[in-house]
């Protein structure tokens, strides 16, 4: 099994999404000028990395066997229905955004909130960019990505994912006993590759 890493320079920020993540109503005013400052400060602070590996997956009712580990989950089994392969990945924005959140928590919680929302948007954008790449590389459609903690997909499965991907070594991502990831703006997920009909 080969673990690959990819580094990303993400495109434009979707400011509307950031606003939504910050808990603002659609028609409410939003401090876009603060957001623009945050985007400027975050620019050099982001170090977007993904590590991943490709797995053959065997599904038997609700049991999924990835070879290196197996898991029981009705929701994931449904998500991966008819997939013979799946990419398991871990993506992170790095520690820079966490430092910005910590720094502004001390002096301006509103700015910290916006960094928090910006981080959430960027993490999703990173996953989107990666999933698009995988789609292209495999020349196949993919299922929506599915993370530990969604539905009945046990969050403690994070342990297995970290063990097989060696996230600490490849992208500097660590896991604590509460299954929280550090850096915090990080995602792990399973991405089902749809088997081509022909």
């Amino acid at each position: 099994m080969t673990v690959y890493t990819k580094t990303y320079d993400l495109g434009k920020v979707n400011k509307k999404e950031v606003k939504r993540y910050a808990g603002s109503g659609e028609n409410a005013a939003f401090p876009y000028e603060i957001l623009d400052e945050c985007i400027g400060k975050a620019k050099n602070a982001l170090s977007c990395k993904v590590c991943y590996a490709v797995f053959d997956v065997k599904i038997c009712e609700n049991n999924l066997d990835f070879g290196a580990f197996s898991v029981k989950s009705k929701n994931l089994a449904k998500n991966l229905k008819k997939c013979e392969k799946a990419v398991i990945f871990a993506a992170t924005l790095g520690v820079g955004i966490d430092r910005l959140i910590a720094k502004y928590s001390a002096v301006s919680p509103s700015t910290a909130l916006i960094f928090q929302a910006l981080g959430a948007e960027r993490a999703e954008a990173l996953c989107d960019a990666f999933c698009e790449d995988i789609k292209r590389e495999f020349g196949a459609e993919t299922r929506p990505r599915f993370s530990p903690g969604y539905g009945d997909f046990d969050i403690f499965c994070q342990k297995d994912i970290f063990a097989v991907l060696n996230c600490e070594k490849h992208i500097g991502l660590t896991l604590n006993d509460s299954m929280l990831m550090s850096p915090s703006k990080s995602v792990t997920a399973v991405l089902g590759i749809k088997t081509n009909e022909n």
Binding site: A22, G23, S24, A28, A29, F30, P31, I34, S110, L113
Partner: peptide, 10 residues
């Protein structure tokens, strides 16, 4: 919303 609430609080 929350961002305004916080800015006022600051």
């Amino acid at each position: 919303y929350l961002p305004q609430l916080l800015i006022s609080a600051e």
